[in-house]
């Protein structure tokens, strides 16, 4: 006799809870540890002698007089101009998100409402585009961009990111639009709207939750991008992620790994906040994509 939902099996619940706790440590501990370590000096966080130095901060106290130090952050943000990269990232992600959504809602709406075969083929093509590693496209950008003399600037990177994100944005918004009944656009059109008025006055107000969710993912794609921003931006225009990558070569050899650690932690903070406030939308977005397939 197996237990029914009314009579829970406590052993199983216990095992499940233990497993989940283990997973939480695996998933969360690295971030906790790195954040903690970013306030130490290198000799503590990367300790040759004893790993517990990172907890007690022996060398941090010896070098700075306190168990916690902001030296890493100072070095990265002020000495190495990480603030500029932060501003660039903000600019790039905000503009990319807005443009992606504008283009994506228009296109996704058309794809969801057209019953013709070519709409299907556009979606399939978008799927193939979505599958292509971004770096393969980047190798196609460089030569033409050098020739047109548009390499290295923020607008170029923004437009490229918008285009590269379009396949994903189209798919996601297309499936959100499919969940809005066609009757709504049709009654708007019978009531006197043009197609575009129906879209703007009636459909978009209903779509806001879907647009916000898709916007979150567009934001993540732009924020997390490495291939495009690393290859298409010149040094002074770099965003945070390529900046961190360039730290790896230069700063580590100078013994300032802690600059890289602190900038990594800094770049995690916005993502952390994002998950905190938009957990529901992110989960909903992942699920919506899956359900519509």
């Amino acid at each position: 006799m197996t237990s029914s939902p009314a009579r829970p099996n406590y052993t199983l619940t216990l095992i499940a809870t233990a497993f989940v706790l283990f997973w939480m440590v695996v998933a969360g501990f690295p971030f906790l540890w790195t954040t903690w370590g970013s306030f130490k000096v290198e000799a503590d966080f990367f300790s040759r002698a004893d790993w517990s130095n990172a907890l007690s901060g022996v060398n941090t106290i010896r070098q700075t007089g306190d168990a916690f130090t902001m030296d890493g952050y100072k070095g990265a943000w002020i000495l190495n101009d990480f603030w500029r990269a932060g501003l660039n990232t903000m600019l790039v992600t905000v503009v990319v998100t807005v443009l992606s959504l504008v283009l994506g809602t228009l296109g996704g709406y058309a794809l969801a409402r057209s019953g013709y075969r070519y709409a299907f083929w556009i979606l399939i093509l978008a799927l193939v585009f979505r599958a292509m590693p971004h770096i393969t496209l980047v190798s196609g950008y460089l030569v033409p961009f050098f020739q047109l003399n548009i390499w290295g600037t923020l607008p170029t990177a923004i437009i490229v990111l918008v285009a590269i994100n379009q396949p994903f944005t189209l798919w996601m918004l297309h499936s959100f639009f499919l969940s809005i009944p066609k009757d709504l656009d049709e009654s708007a059109m019978v009531d006197g709207c043009t197609r575009f008025q129906a879209f703007r006055e009636v459909i978009v107000p209903v779509m806001w939750p879907g647009i916000i969710t898709t916007g979150l993912f567009s934001f993540l794609l732009a924020y997390n991008d490495f291939a495009v921003t690393a290859m298409l931006l010149r040094q002074e225009n770099q965003t945070m992620i390529p900046k961190i990558a360039s730290f790896l070569g230069s700063i580590e050899s100078e013994g300032n790994v802690m600059f890289a650690v602190s900038s990594v932690v800094s770049a995690t903070v916005p993502l952390f906040i994002l998950v905190m406030f938009f957990q529901r939308q992110i989960v909903g977005g992942l699920t919506a994509g899956a359900v519509k397939g």
Partner: peptide, 9 residues
């Protein structure tokens, strides 16, 4: 967290 984190980070 591991999913939304920037892969490089």
């Amino acid at each position: 967290l591991p999913m939304i984190i920037t892969p490089l980070i």
